[in-house]
Design a protein around this nucleic acid. Structure first.
Lengths: 140, 140
DNA sequence: TCCATAATTTGAACTCAATACAAATTTATA
DNA sequence: TATAAATTTGTATTGAGTTCAAATTATGGA
């Protein structure tokens, strides 16, 4: 938790109890949650917290580069505690989003064909390994 | 237009005047439009068309693989007349989405780390070449 | 400690893309 | 032509995300 305070302070964000709790959730859950998922869990610890605070905090985190928004499902934004760049896989069956470590030669470039690159996203859609195996078992 | 009829029939979609008009728009405009942009233009030719028909048609096109939905901006879905796989660049300044031709070694794989791949998306965010040049000119 | 100011949080109202659904219309089939 | 099926339409609804002013909390000086 001390570590999370430092992360916020390094990003010039005052570490309020709400922000810490949200960041703590993201730190413990690398499952690319929605704002609702975050709210539901944090609410059990801070019953007075509002959804607006969750959105406000996430916006702050994004603006300061410690969280990355993922536009993958098309229905809602997923939030990713920014670590090192990686790809994502979205299972159209179970809805889970997995991290994929891909050796991508374009990653890390700051300029490309004259454009300034700030963020890079690679994501795949399909059926995940787990769902494929379950399916195979059912048809046995 | 004859060509578009074939595309729909090959996808087992009855080529109604509404669907043809929507596909015709996507064929003429490779600027990754929103459903609203499509509706606004098609409405000038078919004044009775409804937004629901636009959404229904796009859904049909997607299900049959002739259109790809892009979840890039986070606020609305963009539609891409499916041709060959390519990456996208989203300019955070002007909002335009460009096609990027990238030599990507992962593209075309049908399986990856045990997952079945149906779609692959690579997109970049930043400031586009045009906006960078305008900015440079202003600061002269 | 007290007070004034600033920062943060809250909750209700609102926006808007997308969906649901039943009625109306058009098209296909017997 | 009549009946059924497919398509379109328009209204109502959903729900993630935003707006904004009031309430609360934190900060810093006297």
């Amino acid at each position: 938790m001390e570590n999370l305070i430092n992360i916020l302070e390094d990003a010039n964000i005052k570490p309020t109890i709400e922000r810490l709790s949200i960041l703590n959730y993201l730190d413990r859950n690398h499952n690319h949650p929605t704002a609702s998922m975050i709210f539901d869990e944090v609410e059990t610890k801070i019953p007075t917290i509002s959804k607006t605070t969750v959105y406000n905090s996430l916006k702050l985190f994004i603006e300061n580069g410690i969280v990355t928004p993922l536009y993958i499902t098309g229905s809602e934004i997923r939030y990713d505690f920014t670590t090192k760049p990686h790809h994502h896989f979205f299972c159209e069956n179970c809805g889970k989003i997995f991290d994929l470590v891909v050796d991508c030669p374009i990653f890390s470039k700051k300029h490309f064909q004259g454009h300034l690159i700030r963020q890079q996203h690679g994501y795949f859609r399909g059926i995940c390994k787990d769902c494929l195996e379950k399916e195979a078992k059912e048809h046995h």
